[in-house]
Simulated scan of single mutants.
Amino acid sequence: MFTTTQQRLEQHQARGRTITLKIKFGDYQQITRSKTLPDYIGDIETIIATATALFEAVELKSRSIRLLGISLSNLENGKQTQVIQLPLFSSSGIIFSFNNG
Protein backbone atom coordinates (compact mmCIF):
# COMPACT_ATOMS: atom_id res chain seq x y z
CA MET A 1 0.00 0.00 0.00
CA PHE A 2 2.68 2.51 0.96
CA THR A 3 4.49 2.04 -2.36
CA THR A 4 1.31 2.80 -4.33
CA THR A 5 0.54 5.85 -2.20
CA GLN A 6 4.11 7.11 -2.51
CA GLN A 7 3.90 6.63 -6.28
CA ARG A 8 0.65 8.64 -6.42
CA LEU A 9 2.22 11.46 -4.44
CA GLU A 10 5.23 11.48 -6.75
CA GLN A 11 3.09 11.20 -9.89
CA HIS A 12 1.12 14.29 -8.90
CA GLN A 13 4.24 15.95 -7.50
CA ALA A 14 2.17 16.45 -4.39
CA ARG A 15 3.63 17.90 -1.27
CA GLY A 16 1.43 19.42 1.35
CA ARG A 17 1.49 20.91 4.81
CA THR A 18 -1.84 19.79 6.31
CA ILE A 19 -2.68 16.21 7.27
CA THR A 20 -6.35 15.62 8.09
CA LEU A 21 -7.78 12.58 9.83
CA LYS A 22 -11.53 11.95 9.53
CA ILE A 23 -13.18 9.44 11.86
CA LYS A 24 -16.77 8.29 11.37
CA PHE A 25 -18.25 6.36 14.26
CA GLY A 26 -20.85 3.60 14.27
CA ASP A 27 -23.50 6.07 15.49
CA TYR A 28 -22.79 8.22 12.37
CA GLN A 29 -21.16 11.00 14.33
CA GLN A 30 -17.95 12.17 12.72
CA ILE A 31 -14.94 14.17 13.79
CA THR A 32 -11.93 15.54 11.99
CA ARG A 33 -8.53 16.37 13.36
CA SER A 34 -5.78 18.07 11.39
CA LYS A 35 -2.25 19.24 11.81
CA THR A 36 -0.48 21.80 9.66
CA LEU A 37 3.26 21.24 9.50
CA PRO A 38 5.83 24.03 9.14
CA ASP A 39 7.28 22.53 5.94
CA TYR A 40 5.81 20.83 2.89
CA ILE A 41 6.02 17.04 3.07
CA GLY A 42 5.38 14.32 0.54
CA ASP A 43 6.78 11.21 2.15
CA ILE A 44 4.36 8.56 3.34
CA GLU A 45 6.24 7.89 6.59
CA THR A 46 5.66 11.44 7.85
CA ILE A 47 2.03 11.39 6.73
CA ILE A 48 1.33 8.10 8.53
CA ALA A 49 3.22 9.18 11.67
CA THR A 50 1.25 12.44 11.83
CA ALA A 51 -2.10 10.70 11.21
CA THR A 52 -1.26 8.12 13.87
CA ALA A 53 -0.49 10.86 16.41
CA LEU A 54 -3.79 12.57 15.58
CA PHE A 55 -5.66 9.28 16.01
CA GLU A 56 -3.99 8.47 19.33
CA ALA A 57 -5.09 11.85 20.71
CA VAL A 58 -8.78 11.01 20.17
CA GLU A 59 -10.71 9.60 23.13
CA LEU A 60 -12.61 6.65 21.71
CA LYS A 61 -14.40 5.54 24.90
CA SER A 62 -15.12 2.08 23.41
CA ARG A 63 -16.93 3.58 20.41
CA SER A 64 -16.99 1.61 17.20
CA ILE A 65 -15.40 3.18 14.15
CA ARG A 66 -16.90 2.63 10.73
CA LEU A 67 -14.55 4.77 8.63
CA LEU A 68 -11.10 6.34 8.88
CA GLY A 69 -9.78 8.72 6.24
CA ILE A 70 -6.49 10.52 5.77
CA SER A 71 -6.00 13.42 3.40
CA LEU A 72 -3.16 15.72 2.42
CA SER A 73 -4.00 19.35 1.63
CA ASN A 74 -2.54 22.85 1.66
CA LEU A 75 -0.51 21.74 -1.33
CA GLU A 76 2.69 23.32 -2.50
CA ASN A 77 1.58 23.71 -6.10
CA GLY A 78 -0.88 26.43 -5.07
CA LYS A 79 -4.04 24.48 -5.87
CA GLN A 80 -5.51 25.02 -2.44
CA THR A 81 -8.80 23.35 -3.31
CA GLN A 82 -7.14 20.14 -4.52
CA VAL A 83 -7.01 17.40 -1.92
CA ILE A 84 -5.33 14.05 -2.42
CA GLN A 85 -7.10 11.27 -0.56
CA LEU A 86 -4.74 8.56 0.58
CA PRO A 87 -5.75 4.93 1.00
CA LEU A 88 -5.65 3.83 4.63
CA PHE A 89 -5.84 0.07 4.24
CA SER A 90 -5.09 -2.38 1.47
CA SER A 91 -4.58 -6.07 1.07
CA SER A 92 -0.92 -5.69 2.03
CA GLY A 93 -1.45 -7.42 5.38
CA ILE A 94 -0.92 -4.30 7.50
CA ILE A 95 -2.52 -4.70 10.91
CA PHE A 96 -3.56 -1.72 12.96
CA SER A 97 -4.01 -2.31 16.67
CA PHE A 98 -5.96 0.16 18.78
CA ASN A 99 -5.89 -0.04 22.54
CA ASN A 100 -8.94 1.56 24.10
CA GLY A 101 -7.89 0.64 27.62
Rank of each mutant, 00 (worst) to 15 (best):
48 I>F: 10
98 F>V: 14
17 R>C: 03
53 A>S: 11
34 S>L: 15
16 G>W: 09
22 K>T: 11
83 V>L: 12
76 E>F: 04
15 R>D: 09
73 S>K: 14
11 Q>T: 13
14 A>D: 06
16 G>N: 08
31 I>P: 03
7 Q>W: 06
70 I>V: 15
44 I>M: 12
53 A>R: 09
69 G>H: 09
22 K>L: 11
23 I>K: 02
43 D>Y: 05
13 Q>K: 15
35 K>C: 14
87 P>N: 14
32 T>F: 14
98 F>N: 05
12 H>T: 06
59 E>P: 09
64 S>D: 11
92 S>W: 00
20 T>M: 05
24 K>C: 05
95 I>S: 02
30 Q>F: 09
29 Q>Y: 08
75 L>K: 06
41 I>W: 09
48 I>N: 11
18 T>P: 01
16 G>K: 06
21 L>Q: 01
87 P>G: 12
2 F>N: 15
83 V>N: 10
91 S>H: 13
11 Q>F: 12
68 L>W: 01
62 S>C: 07
75 L>A: 06
22 K>W: 01
63 R>N: 07
8 R>F: 10
36 T>V: 10
101 G>P: 10
9 L>H: 05
30 Q>L: 12
89 F>P: 05
29 Q>K: 12
89 F>R: 11
22 K>Q: 06
44 I>A: 00
66 R>S: 10
28 Y>V: 01
89 F>D: 08
48 I>Y: 11
97 S>N: 06
50 T>Y: 02
16 G>P: 06
59 E>H: 11
19 I>D: 01
18 T>K: 08
44 I>S: 05
42 G>R: 04
41 I>P: 05
60 L>F: 11
32 T>W: 11
32 T>I: 13
60 L>G: 00
2 F>L: 15
39 D>C: 12
64 S>I: 08
96 F>R: 01
77 N>V: 01
76 E>C: 03
41 I>G: 03
50 T>S: 02
65 I>V: 13
25 F>G: 02
62 S>G: 10
39 D>S: 14
46 T>L: 03
31 I>C: 06
4 T>M: 12
85 Q>D: 15
9 L>Y: 05
83 V>H: 11
22 K>D: 02
31 I>M: 13
92 S>M: 01
96 F>D: 00
101 G>Q: 14
1 M>P: 12
9 L>G: 04
43 D>I: 04
7 Q>K: 15
16 G>Q: 07
77 N>Q: 08
59 E>W: 00
99 N>W: 00
40 Y>M: 05
61 K>A: 12
27 D>E: 00
14 A>L: 10
31 I>W: 07
3 T>N: 15
63 R>T: 03
17 R>L: 03
91 S>M: 07
54 L>W: 02
5 T>H: 07
65 I>R: 02
68 L>K: 04
69 G>Y: 10
34 S>F: 15
74 N>Y: 05
6 Q>W: 08
61 K>H: 12
49 A>Y: 04
66 R>Q: 13
18 T>R: 08
95 I>A: 02
58 V>C: 07
62 S>F: 13
51 A>Y: 02
47 I>D: 01
60 L>M: 07
71 S>M: 07
42 G>W: 05
10 E>N: 15
53 A>E: 13
2 F>E: 15
26 G>V: 06
32 T>K: 13
39 D>W: 09
92 S>L: 01
11 Q>R: 14
21 L>F: 02
33 R>G: 11
67 L>Q: 13
44 I>F: 06
13 Q>V: 04
79 K>E: 13
8 R>C: 10
64 S>E: 13
100 N>A: 10
20 T>G: 01
99 N>V: 06
